[in-house]
Design a protein around this nucleic acid. Sequence first.
DNA 1: ATGAAAGCGCTAACAT
DNA 2: ATGTTAGCGCTTTCAT
Lengths: 332, 332
Amino acid sequence: MPSDLSKKAITRADVARYAGVSTAVVSYTLNNGPKPVAFATAERVRNAVRVLGYRPNAAARALKRGSSDMIGLVVPDSSNPFFAELAQATEDAAEALGYALVVINGNDSDVVQHVNRLAGRQVDGIIVACDLRLVDIANLTASGIRLSLFNQLHPTEGTHAIGSDLFNGAKAGVFHLLQHGHTHIGFVGNTTPSDTRLRGWEDALREGGVAPGPRYPAGYSREGGYAAGQKLVASSDRPTALFVSTDMQAVGVLRALHERGVEVPREIAIVSLDGTPESEYSWPALTTLRQPVRQMAKDAVAHLLGHAEAADDHRLYPLELVVRQSCGCALP
Amino acid sequence: MPSDLSKKAITRADVARYAGVSTAVVSYTLNNGPKPVAFATAERVRNAVRVLGYRPNAAARALKRGSSDMIGLVVPDSSNPFFAELAQATEDAAEALGYALVVINGNDSDVVQHVNRLAGRQVDGIIVACDLRLVDIANLTASGIRLSLFNQLHPTEGTHAIGSDLFNGAKAGVFHLLQHGHTHIGFVGNTTPSDTRLRGWEDALREGGVAPGPRYPAGYSREGGYAAGQKLVASSDRPTALFVSTDMQAVGVLRALHERGVEVPREIAIVSLDGTPESEYSWPALTTLRQPVRQMAKDAVAHLLGHAEAADDHRLYPLELVVRQSCGCALP
DNA sequence: ATGAAAGCGCTAACAT
DNA sequence: ATGTTAGCGCTTTCAT
């Protein structure tokens, strides 16, 4: 058990006593309201706080007010660079508004439980970047939990959802490949027919009048991309270009290509998606579609905390094409 | 203001009423103690909890018990892969013990303030992976905050500190380079004379009877490494091997080398330090010294939560040499 | 085995 | 402008 150092903590009552005021005045001073405090008195209080090293007890405050000045974030894997950036951006946005962030890794199935636990901690809102079934969303919302769905495909009525336009992003990526004259364009990623990026790839090819190239199923990891890349280099039907669902997977693909001495972009051009920092530092650097993660995080936080205009539930953020060496930009 | 959905939250009293017991019994049931509860009664309570969708209020619990079942983590930059892994590992370890993690990015100067704010949130302990002045450590500790210092060089008496053995790690890295016949070995990283890795580099060279090569100052980022790499390729006195302080910086160096067509490891061999996932997926893959981050995080959490044997304050964790293509392992 | 009740530290409505 | 005080929901001692 966490042994406190038998340092009896200083409470607001101590401060009040030291400053010769009531506890209410201490509150008024520290919270700038709701009642005014004479300047001199406020000074005495602030001084007492300083001298005593008083630290307000957030638990008591949260209990009283029913809100904790914390928000929660549930991601599949916070060490994945994309989600790491999301977490950091969310923390920044939250911190700027005086809120702390609790991050939970919910790769396992019990996302709902995690959300519930966060709710029990009286967080003022929860951003969920994990897949959540519609039923669960409904239940959670019904039980009074303020949710914001991140990059999810369930525009549930009444639930805030923010997402980048992966479909059109993927399309733009494939168009870029088409513009560079490619007519044999493969896909790496989740090959489930309903996958947004896969559909974007298909759609772009259809519009471009080009037959779909091979699909290489890959898990969302460097290893997944690597394995897919190994399949690819071993196959007879090698495409001349590849749309890869995430930068991480593309990094894995690159490794497989390097190992076989396949040159990028000369032999195979690559466009991926996410725009994480590592896409800039792979070799060659990846042409990618950047998701405006920071902006999305900021908006999600603003929404949760009520600082957002209404009406913009279900916002779709456009991706930005960043042209680098893996397709479209000459190597130095 | 966070508008609750006017859904009056279910409290323990509601559960008690529904189950036809006292609030105390609900507590006993939910907490497995401190008093026994008849099985049938407990079942009734559990059922009531389920039916009512009761969610214990962590703030109230924290207020009463003086501990929140949360721990804090202060890092310079949670999107840096090394710290992202630390954060994830810490979250895992904390979660396994029923604790949540609050992560704060404290790159700016007010680490002390962040720590204080975390303490106000009644966290049960704080892991600090940012530089903290000795005075501040003393003050913080004196004010009853349970700290664990991560990779810091101030083995303050009485403060728990965990760190990997960067000095000997760096030495081992340089030895590896020496073993491969290199006699002109440069350094990339923090070139402040007191820097641990710099000292390790120097020490190994001295022991190896080899004159120190050039030092390239670099910030802790890919960009920092890139800039250093650009200096390096432009210089006349180009070393044949490089010890780079972190994987991230090494990735930046690699980019600069690629851009100039310098081959690794043929023209320049590289050993870096950290062992982050991206070290495995750079091209060529980096020979690196892996810090046992997950183990360290686990131990730090265990210590903070009192689950650790005493006596092992100030533990130094050995690094593990991972030989890859950037030095010592043939390219495929 | 169960219950009653006293707070934990803070906020804010209601005095003064 | 300042003070008094009633809870917020929970844990736990002390009854029964």
